[in-house]
């Protein structure tokens, strides 16, 4: 059994662009304090940041969670909806439903989910329209 060394939950609000990235910044600082290897911190930062931005721009709000064990870093998210209709389409590079105002900020390239999958060792996405989206991403230490 792996031993849980750290756990923290970060609420993320819909359309909260002012605080966008703060949860991921906290996650990054925590991993630094725990002495995690720089390359793993960078990979975790990428996946948590893409995930956090998605919660802000696509979801009705939700939360992120960081868990660190002696074996892996787990970043997960859950939101209140609206869920993803076609997951395989959402996972495709270049597919996005982002609004023009979000695109003007530099997001909405349809690269986030494929980026998240590429940067972690295990990627699980569960979503249903009407329910919400849950993502679990694991990076081995």
């Amino acid at each position: 059994m792996s031993e849980l060394l750290y756990k923290e939950i970060y609420p993320v609000d819909k359309d909260d662009f002012v605080r966008a990235g703060e949860a991921s910044a906290k996650i990054k600082r925590t991993l630094k304090q725990l002495g995690v290897d720089a390359d793993k911190i960078r990979r975790t930062s990428v996946v948590s940041y893409e995930c956090e931005i998605n919660l802000i721009i696509h979801s009705l709000g939700g939360q992120m969670c960081l868990e660190v064990t002696d074996e892996e870093i787990i970043v997960s998210s859950s939101d209140k909806g609206p869920g993803i209709k076609d997951i395989s389409l959402a996972m495709k590079e270049g597919w996005s439903t982002a609004s023009d105002s979000v695109r003007e900020m530099g997001f909405g390239a349809g690269m986030g989910l494929p980026n998240m999958k590429r940067h972690c060792d295990e990627f699980i996405l569960n979503s249903a329209p009407g329910a919400g989206t849950e993502i679990v991403m694991k990076i081995k230490i």
């Binding site: 991921s24 960078r42 990428v46 940041y49």
Partner: peptide, 14 residues
Amino acid sequence: LTNPQVIRTSEMLD
């Protein structure tokens, strides 16, 4: 781009 997200993104990647 000049919005604060550019700096946040930069922070994530050092």
